[in-house]
């Protein structure tokens, strides 16, 4: 009997209608209005690569050990170095990173023994040209500088 009444009076449909009706409050809105509101990414987010420099001396932290280039599955890091005769150590000359082929797996960040190469929280890496996606040492140290749209 109840089942018949529930069928005839469309109870299940009205239940569904009530669920959607309940959601019409502004506090439930889940949209982020990009670019005015940028998403907050986590600390460990694997975003744009950055070559860190020592905060005081301004020298690069990279010791040109080439471990990141060896571990990269796509072989897109090229590290060149030259030997400094005075300190008898390798010094970094160029560091090329191809962000267009990078899959942001984080293996290079894990491999770096001195935390020089780090994947930061920047995710806006678009560029107008293919060559613009291949980052040299200077771009890696500065990081991408996305346009901020503020009214």
């Amino acid at each position: 009997m109840w089942k018949f009444l529930r069928t005839v009076l469309l109870v299940d449909l009205i239940q569904g209608l009530w669920v959607t009706f309940r959601y019409q409050q502004p506090k439930y809105i889940y949209t982020e209005q990009y670019p005015a509101q940028r998403p907050q990414v986590a600390e460990r987010y694997r975003g744009a690569p950055r070559l860190n420099i020592h905060p005081e001396s301004g020298q690069t932290l990279c010791i040109a050990c080439d471990l990141c280039a060896l571990i990269c599955p796509e072989n897109l890091i090229v590290v060149t170095s030259e030997r400094n005769e005075q300190t008898r150590r390798k010094e970094l000359t160029t560091f090329t990173y191809d962000t267009s082929r990078c899959m942001f797996c984080g293996l290079c960040e894990d491999a770096c023994p001195v935390d020089a190469l780090e994947l930061t929280q920047d995710f806006e890496l678009a560029s107008y040209t293919r060559e613009g996606a291949i980052w040299d040492r200077q771009m890696l140290e500065e990081g991408p500088l996305p346009k901020q749209y503020v009214r």
Binding site: Y30, V41, A42, E43, R44, Y45, R46, M103, F104, C105, G106, D110, L119
Partner: peptide, 30 residues
């Protein structure tokens, strides 16, 4: 989205997580 946020906080990526390594984990839990 909530589940993906947990992934992101743990390993840094939401979709292609690369969360585990051979032999265990790379990252300690946050």
């Amino acid at each position: 989205e909530e589940a993906l946020k947990i992934f992101e906080k743990y390993c840094g990526a939401r979709l292609t997580t690369h969360a585990f390594r051979i032999g265990g984990l790379q990252y300690e839990t946050y």
